[in-house]
C-alpha cells in the first residue's frame, strides 16, 4: 500500500463532506463575508490580548520566513506505562504523567511524535521529539495528552483562555469551545451570534443536520516542556483542572 493509494481513496470522499470542510469559505457569498469579518476581528482581538494561551517562541528558531508547515511522523504505540522512562530518555526531558486519573481515565497507549517545522522554502528548520499519551474510559470520549518542547508551537492564533488558575505554582489555562455544524440555510440565534463574536462558538455551514462538538483543553508549561490535555467532550473547568493537578503532582 502506498500514500498514493490512500490519497486517491481520500479523493473519492463524499462531495458533501468535501464541500462541508470549506463551508465557511466556499461559494456562499453572504455567510462567507460575515465569517471573514468575524475571523479578521477575532484575529485583531487576539493580537491585542496580553495573556496569550502560550508564549510564542516558534519564530525564535531564526527563519525570517517563519514556520510554514509541519512534518509529523509517529512511532508505534506502546501499551505498557512502565516503558515511560525509556521514552523520556528518547525525548530528552522528564514527563509528568499518570497511569490512571482519579476520574477513572486509564492509560491506553503512548507513542513518540517526530515534528519538523518547515519554512517557506521547504527547508526543515529543526527536528523535535514529543510524546503522545492516550487515555480511555468506558462510555466516554478518549483524552489525549501531548507533551512536546514548548518551542514547537506557534500559538499566535490561539483563542484566549476560558479560565486560568495557578496549580502548584504553575499557570494552567483551560479553554472550552463548541463547534456547530449546521445546514446551509441555518440562521444563528442572537445568542449564537454573540458567542461566535466572543470566540466560544464556531459555526460551519453545509452539514445535513445540526451537530455539536464540544472541545475542552487544558495547557501548561513546565520548564521548556508544554503539556496539552485535550478531549472532545463537554468537560468543565473543575474537571479538567483536577486532571492537570494530578499530572503536576506526578
Amino acid at each position: 500500500m502506498t500514500s498514493d493509494q490512500i490519497l486517491d481513496a481520500i479523493g473519492l470522499a463524499d462531495e458533501t463532506w468535501v464541500a462541508d470542510a470549506k463551508a465557511n469559505i466556499a461559494a456562499q457569498p453572504r455567510k462567507t463575508t460575515v465569517s471573514v469579518h468575524r475571523r479578521v476581528r477575532r484575529v485583531a482581538l487576539l493580537a491585542a490580548v496580553v495573556s496569550l494561551f502560550f508564549t510564542v517562541t516558534a519564530y525564535a528558531l531564526g527563519s525570517p520566513a517563519g514556520i510554514l508547515s509541519w512534518s509529523l511522523s509517529r512511532g508505534l504505540g506502546q501499551n505498557d506505562f512502565r516503558f515511560l522512562p525509556a521514552y523520556e530518555r528518547q525525548v530528552g526531558f522528564p514527563v509528568s504523567a499518570v497511569e490512571e486519573f482519579s476520574n477513572g481515565y486509564r492509560f491506553r497507549e503512548l507513542s513518540l511524535v517526530h515534528s519538523s517545522p518547515v519554512d517557506a522554502e521547504g527547508n526543515a528548520l529543526a527536528e523535535y521529539l514529543g510524546l503522545d499519551l492516550a487515555y480511555e474510559k468506558a462510555d466516554a470520549p478518549d483524552v489525549y495528552l501531548d507533551v512536546e518542547p514548548a518551542a514547537l508551537s506557534n500559538e499566535e492564533n490561539a483563542p484566549p483562555a476560558t479560565e486560568t488558575r495557578e496549580v502548584g505554582g504553575v499557570t494552567v489555562r483551560y479553554h472550552y469551545s463548541v463547534y456547530m455544524a449546521v445546514p446551509a440555510d441555518y440562521r444563528p440565534t442572537a445568542e449564537e451570534e454573540a458567542r461566535v463574536a466572543s470566540g466560544e462558538l464556531q459555526i460551519g455551514y453545509g452539514s445535513d443536520a445540526v451537530q455539536v462538538n464540544p472541545c475542552a483543553t487544558i495547557g501548561f508549561v513546565i520548564g521548556d516542556v508544554r503539556y496539552t490535555l485535550l478531549c472532545f467532550a463537554d468537560y468543565d473547568a473543575d474537571y479538567m483542572f483536577q486532571m492537570a493537578a494530578e499530572l503536576l503532582a506526578a
Partner: peptide, 22 residues
C-alpha cells in the same frame, strides 16, 4: 483532500496549530 497547510487550517477553524496537529 485540500492539502491546506497546518497554519491555514488553524486560521480557518480558530484553533492553535498544535491542536490541529493533535
Amino acid at each position: 483532500w485540500y492539502f491546506d497547510s497546518i497554519a491555514a487550517i488553524a486560521a480557518q477553524f480558530g484553533f492553535s496549530e498544535s491542536k490541529v496537529k493533535s
